[in-house]
């Protein structure tokens, strides 16, 4: 039962980070392998704010989210926008380059060692329910994940901005003709994607750890979520994240000698059986 709960919690954390990738990769169609770099940025901002300046945790998380968003906007304006029409290969190479640069910068600024985080008192400890003992931090991740999931679902599915974004992605020329400022929509969407990465990276330091190799180490996980969940589907990403979280935690608990192998296998099998993902629309 605890394993199930931990699995759901780590799945939710995975969702928090990957939901941003669902926006940039899934919706906007940029193969942004550097997504983890934005999450790492969020993580470092949060740790530095907490440890060095003693800023309260919620504010530190907010700062992490905003700085990742700012980095996202800057990079979108400067470089990513040039790549919208470019081939896959260019996007792949570019974002790998960004990963390397971010890793080198992180190592230079903070050293290669993992960064510890001191969670505030109210996130530590356990709560004893009648049938299960749960960690407060993990419960917090689950709640936060659900809040983000619902918000995103509504933001993209219901609001005017969501409609504009979907229009801008599907038919940029027509969207422009209808008076939608496609450029701005893309900047905002990219900022949201990066912000979510920063948020996930900040709250996830405790569970995932934080060191300069972060963007590469978890890259495959983030991609799996989006690919298994189906491009641009937040429900899909949520289900995929939770499933992967449970599989991963259970797999590492019951058959530690196999490790992450299960997850990669699940992904490859999934791609073979349903290339469009669990909830994805078949590609047009």
């Amino acid at each position: 039962m605890t394993i199930l709960f931990d699995g759901i919690a780590s799945g939710m954390l995975l969702f928090l980070i990957s939901s941003g990738l669902s926006v940039t990769l899934g919706l906007m169609g940029i193969i942004n392998l550097a997504h983890g770099a934005f999450a790492m940025l969020g993580g470092y901002v949060c740790v530095v704010a907490l440890d060095r300046y003693g800023i309260p945790f919620p504010v530190a998380v907010l700062m992490a989210t905003l700085s990742a968003a700012a980095a996202g906007v800057a990079l979108e304006r400067l470089v990513y926008r040039r790549l919208y029409g470019a081939g896959q290969l260019d996007q792949v190479l570019f974002s790998i380059g960004l990963i390397f640069v971010s890793m080198a910068l992180a190592r230079w600024l903070f050293g290669p060692q993992p960064q510890p985080i001191r969670l505030p008192g109210w996130l530590q400890g356990q709560v004893q329910l009648p049938w299960i003992e749960i960690g407060v931090y993990r419960a917090f991740l689950i709640v936060l994940g659900l809040v983000v999931a619902v918000t995103l679902h509504r933001a993209v599915g219901v609001t005017r901005f969501g409609a504009r974004l979907r229009a801008a992605v599907d038919r940029p020329a027509v969207a422009r003709g209808l008076g939608i400022d496609v450029d701005r929509v893309f900047v905002v969407a990219f900022a949201i994607g990066s912000a979510l990465a920063g948020l996930g990276g900040a709250v996830g330091v405790e569970l995932l750890g934080l060191d300069p190799s972060f963007p590469l180490r978890y890259l495959v996980y983030f991609l799996i979520v989006v690919v298994v969940g189906g491009s641009g589907s937040f429900e899909g990403s949520l289900v995929a994240s939770v499933l992967i979280g449970i599989f991963d935690v259970a797999g590492k608990y019951y058959v530690p000698q196999v490790g992450s192998f299960i997850i990669y296998t699940v992904m490859v099998v999934m791609l073979i059986v349903r290339p469009q993902g669990l909830f994805g629309r078949p590609s047009p």
Partner: peptide, 25 residues
Amino acid sequence: LRGSGLSQLMVSVGINAMLYEAANK
């Protein structure tokens, strides 16, 4: 050859990751 585009790319990443993990364990 099953997929194309992104899913093909992901399959290649996945196969690589599987083998790495297998060799690692």
